[in-house]
Simulated scan of single mutants.
Amino acid sequence: MSDAAAEQARTRAFFAARAAGWDAKFPDDGPRYAEAIGELGLRGGEFVVDAGCGTGRALPLLRAAVGPDGTVLGVDLTPEMIDLARAHAADAALLVADCGRLPLPDATVDLVFGAGLISHLPGPAAGLRELARVTRPGGRLALYHPIGRTALAARHGRPITPDDLRAEPNLRPLLTTTGWHLTSYTDTDTRYLATATRT
């Protein structure tokens, strides 16, 4: 088994074991998701992929933002998460798939929304390149978490490390080399949101 495949298996097992209690563990995140998605400037008719959609908390918000003429696709590696996402799906399509190998044509997506995604990609550069492949030129990427890096590290009982991919000095060049241009970056106790445009 390759390193990437082993990492995927670990990720799938981690989330499979926690899927049933995931939403109950973070019951207050909904308004934060709504605020962040409201700021992304989505328009009716757009095609959005929720990459690593988990239990689907963002799906109804994304669906409302793109309207009845838009398309929302929730993708997650963990079947147990996708099963739970069906309750939130709000007419979104759901797919068990690897975000590093999406069964989508080139340059079709208007926005990729990734909540907590980047730290779970077994090969972040390859994963971001794949997200760039499916996104149209000028399309966007939103990397989100309902709390910032410092608060998240404290939640897990560890310090922030200098090699954290989500840190702006690390994220900007990573995005640049994978087909993206970082356009905004916010990292506070109550939000992490980095947005980029497909170059």
Score class of each variant (00 low, 15 high):
residue 2 S to Q: 13
residue 4 A to R: 15
residue 5 A to I: 11
residue 6 A to L: 15
residue 7 E to K: 14
residue 7 E to G: 08
residue 7 E to D: 14
residue 7 E to Q: 14
residue 8 Q to W: 05
residue 8 Q to G: 03
residue 9 A to E: 14
residue 10 R to K: 12
residue 11 T to Y: 00
residue 12 R to Q: 08
residue 12 R to G: 00
residue 15 F to H: 08
residue 21 G to C: 09
residue 24 A to F: 01
residue 24 A to W: 00
residue 24 A to C: 05
residue 25 K to T: 14
residue 27 P to H: 11
residue 29 D to G: 04
residue 38 G to C: 09
residue 39 E to P: 02
residue 39 E to R: 15
residue 42 L to E: 10
residue 45 G to Q: 01
residue 46 E to Y: 04
residue 46 E to P: 02
residue 47 F to Y: 14
residue 47 F to I: 12
residue 47 F to W: 12
residue 48 V to H: 06
residue 49 V to T: 07
residue 50 D to R: 05
residue 52 G to W: 01
residue 53 C to N: 10
residue 53 C to T: 13
residue 57 R to I: 15
residue 58 A to N: 14
residue 62 L to C: 10
residue 64 A to W: 00
residue 65 A to L: 03
residue 73 L to S: 10
residue 73 L to M: 11
residue 74 G to T: 01
residue 75 V to Q: 02
residue 77 L to M: 03
residue 78 T to K: 05
residue 78 T to N: 00
residue 81 M to G: 00
residue 84 L to I: 07
residue 92 A to T: 08
residue 95 L to H: 06
residue 96 V to C: 06
residue 96 V to M: 12
residue 98 D to V: 11
residue 98 D to Q: 07
residue 105 P to N: 12
residue 107 A to M: 02
residue 110 D to G: 09
residue 113 F to S: 03
residue 116 G to V: 15
residue 116 G to M: 12
residue 118 I to Y: 14
residue 120 H to D: 14
residue 121 L to N: 08
residue 121 L to Y: 07
residue 125 A to I: 09
residue 127 G to P: 03
residue 128 L to G: 09
residue 129 R to C: 12
residue 131 L to K: 02
residue 140 R to I: 08
residue 140 R to K: 06
residue 141 L to Q: 11
residue 142 A to R: 05
residue 142 A to L: 07
residue 144 Y to T: 02
residue 146 P to N: 01
residue 147 I to Q: 10
residue 148 G to M: 02
residue 149 R to T: 12
residue 150 T to A: 15
residue 152 L to I: 07
residue 152 L to E: 11
residue 160 I to T: 07
residue 161 T to Y: 07
residue 162 P to A: 14
residue 163 D to M: 03
residue 167 A to S: 15
residue 169 P to E: 06
residue 172 R to G: 14
residue 176 T to R: 13
residue 178 T to A: 11
residue 178 T to R: 09
residue 178 T to G: 00
residue 180 W to V: 13
residue 183 T to Y: 11
residue 186 T to N: 04
residue 187 D to A: 04
residue 190 T to F: 04
residue 192 Y to V: 12
residue 194 A to W: 00
residue 194 A to N: 01
residue 199 T to C: 07
